[in-house]
Design a protein around this nucleic acid. Sequence first.
DNA 1: AACCAGGTCTCGA
DNA 2: TCGAGACCTGGT
Length: 280
Amino acid sequence: MRVPLFHLGYTLDSGQVFRWQRDGEWWRGVVGRRSLRLRQEDGELVVQGDADEAFLRRYFRLDDDLEAIYADISRDEDIAAVIDRFRGLRLIRQEVWECSASYLLASYANVPRIKMMIESVCRTYGARLPDGRYAFPTPEELAEGGDIAACRLGYRADWLRCYARSVRDGEFDLDKLKGLDYESSVRYLKTVRGIGDKVADCIALFSLDHLQACPVDVRIARAMKERYGVSGSYKKVSEHARRHFGRYAGYAQEYLYLAEDRAQKKASTASSPGTRTPAP
DNA sequence: AACCAGGTCTCGA
DNA sequence: TCGAGACCTGGT
């Protein structure tokens, strides 16, 4: 399918989603119960698997007018340069249950481990797909399934089981959540054990279309301090970012995240020169 | 081998 | 409302 301004690699490698992996020129991933392979050739997205054009257009937010968003969030030279470097990075529109359950697990863990935990949860509770991969489990499957200890979730295990039961029982209402504005949705999300400021913002941004949400993790905190001299509480930094970047602050946040991520990876590979001989 | 990670919870001021 | 400390576990 033909796509507008879009960079598949930046988009799938920006820490938004946890079930995609690079496989040569292809990206392999599972979204809900669809197993997919994607490859980009300039303005063409090559698709293998059960995804129609409408689904991908929605998932990758291809209808967002990126140039208009760039114009809106380019409030200073610094962010403009970052945007220019990662042009085509898009936010991904995730399904609410999968997004919220995934980010519930994401607290205080690094991306490789988050991917492991989620893969483990899918293998343990999710439906097996024709190609051998596993769908993300439904709240019912997760609430009623067997041993969660094998998933190695640590203290997140109880959070996830409780959340799944709560959604299954209708105590936490995902349809109600979808109807709330940004502030109300964050307030409602934070009633869930394990969902705090940061995770609530991730869910609001990645699955509820609240593009002003600005999740602040350690990289964004670092970026906001180094680039704008802003530090302090979550509320302070997040609100400053939202005021500074405006109604698409979440987009600005994602570009900063990828820039910080790349900078950190580059620094760590430079400082560890391959094999090191142990001290005598 | 320490330190850190897409943080949250609890508790005391 | 805010800051401080604890926390499962695996990567780096």
